[in-house]
Design a protein around this nucleic acid. Sequence first.
DNA 1: TGTACATCAGTGAACGCGCGTTCACTGATGTAC
DNA 2: TGTACATCAGTGAACGCGCGTTCACTGATGTAC
Lengths: 190, 190
Amino acid sequence: MAEPANRRAETREKILTAAGQLFREHGIDGVGVDAVMKQAGLTHGGFYLHFASKEALAAEVTQTLLQRAAEQWQALSQSGDRAAALNTIVSRYLDPELVASGQCCPLTTLGSDVARRGASRAAAGGALRGMLDALCRCLPGRKRQRALTALSTMVGAVVLARLSGDAALSAEFLKAAADSVLPVRPSRAA
Amino acid sequence: MAEPANRRAETREKILTAAGQLFREHGIDGVGVDAVMKQAGLTHGGFYLHFASKEALAAEVTQTLLQRAAEQWQALSQSGDRAAALNTIVSRYLDPELVASGQCCPLTTLGSDVARRGASRAAAGGALRGMLDALCRCLPGRKRQRALTALSTMVGAVVLARLSGDAALSAEFLKAAADSVLPVRPSRAA
DNA sequence: TGTACATCAGTGAACGCGCGTTCACTGATGTAC
DNA sequence: TGTACATCAGTGAACGCGCGTTCACTGATGTAC
């Protein structure tokens, strides 16, 4: 089935996706190669056909996730309506369901993992700058300062929402952050 | 030397201190029992005279660090001058040297470790409430909302400062967060 | 169309290192007489 | 004051499990003739 030409590339992608989910949920050290491969529908032996080591996988996963997040923000920020773009960025980032599922921004779920792994830090720096750029483009007022604060507030809110272990308090953090970052409430709500 | 009565308690304390430093620097999974004991000036075998397991040590370390942070904030917030208290809380929390050394708030250094360990999550919830209380007491205006945002901003700034891997960008995050949280710049600076 | 062979992604048993944990032993301190 | 003994914190060698990594093998797909 399917052209065999890109079968290899497809399974590689499957492994990356599986690792992206599991690493964010349980931390890089909390997930074994066998668990990643199982989630991808394979057995652990084949892993080294696609990656040189678990560490290499971890570096690629964090880099991919960070880059994707930055690119999404950039694309949104370059669309026509900047207020709408900001609204989309913020409400996606602070979506309670995403946060609860653990499939949220890798900065918040893999923060300390990334901070301690040299391989991922460079990627993190690049992604950070991209996200700041995007925010600068969307925000009114003193832009750089506001962008730095907005990003800090959003990241902190997600970290704290995940930590609090209490749905009500989590929701409070996310809501307060959204209200603080969005300059005025969108008036289009039904 | 020293009364033998509390020698045991003293070494226990030494182990906790050593673990507090190393866990924040390298993550709980990144530090072995032998490294902790070495840092405490002991050999690894004696560890189990003081703690039932590494997991028990991790739980006690995070609980102790979180509780201490919350209590410090509470004490400050109950002193006479609330503006000064807020200023102290914020500038200590966002101190670039502390952040660079890794000996900063356990919420930022152990965030994902704590979020994933049941034992520590309850402690984290309690500490969070204590810190929010303290901020509420110091802040003017719509307090609860402002306290939630202020805490998110500070935590996020420290997380991002540690991630960015670039001293200049780190400093920008910390400075922007301080300016955003403190209502007006303190006028007493020389 | 059919047979023989090459290629290669994936399998699963096995290896070995690191680390949490155990345990028999040491050596220092305090007590009994 | 001095000797024998009990207590107990700490030592370091050893154990065993988990997990990252390797490797001989399988089986499916594509190509040659």
